[in-house]
Amino acid sequence: MLKLIQIEFMKLRRRKLVWLMLLASLVMPFFAFLYYGYFGKTGIDPAAFYKWSAFGYTMLIILPFVLGMLCTILMYNENRYDMLKQLWIVPVSRLGYFFSKFFVVLIYSVCFMLITAIASVLFSVLPGYVVFEWGSIFFLMKKCLEIALFTAFAMLPVLAVTASQKGYILSVCITLIYAFAGFFMTPINMYLHPLSCVSVIVSRSGDIPGLTLPQAVHAPVAILGIFLWSVAATLFAMVTLNRRK
């Protein structure tokens, strides 16, 4: 498995675009910086700033969308150059192939959120909006790692759908709809969609000010929701990959 992951990264080395997509991690910290700059506030509660820069739209929309795009790129390239046939001849197991892609998505997700965390600290501390405290930075890092980890698992259904497709159009549309469905589903039922389950897990302790959830928070139910979706996605991917020649 480690060798497969290493090979995946070697393939990605040639694709500058994938690394360019990491720039999207700076979007919300920058907008949070502009937002607080616009109101001219200083001495803000760090958690309030980080809610804007990392726990809000980054978690609900930007990260899922970027990861969905990554899933599509990873799978589409194999299909495009007809690499799958050669991989099956080697042989590479279907499960190994699927999870090697998943681990790339997971590592990418962690890198993305770490950049968001660093950018959030820089955009909040340097202009003097937030007082530098190790405690708040550890809090931000912990939450960012949680978001990265659970969002990567929540994206498994998209990875499974992209694995079943030869083209990119459906995968991209599914990514778009999936990311926004999570955003819109949160006020309706937080435990139905894996991405809204991530927001439940992240806000389970109630330590993010202003992040109000419409229902009672049950982190184990949210983890169970993500787990069930992940299992279903893996099974779906196995079936579709086995069917494909």
């Binding site: 675009l17 997509m21 999207a24 907008f31 739209y57 929309i61 969308f65 970027v66 991209v172």
Partner: peptide
């Protein structure tokens, strides 16, 4: 790199919120 174009379009429209 049409992927980047899609990402750009998404961030471009999303930024309108701010």
């Amino acid at each position: 790199s049409y992927w980047l174009a899609l990402l750009l379009a998404e961030i471009y429209s999303f930024s309108a919120l701010f």
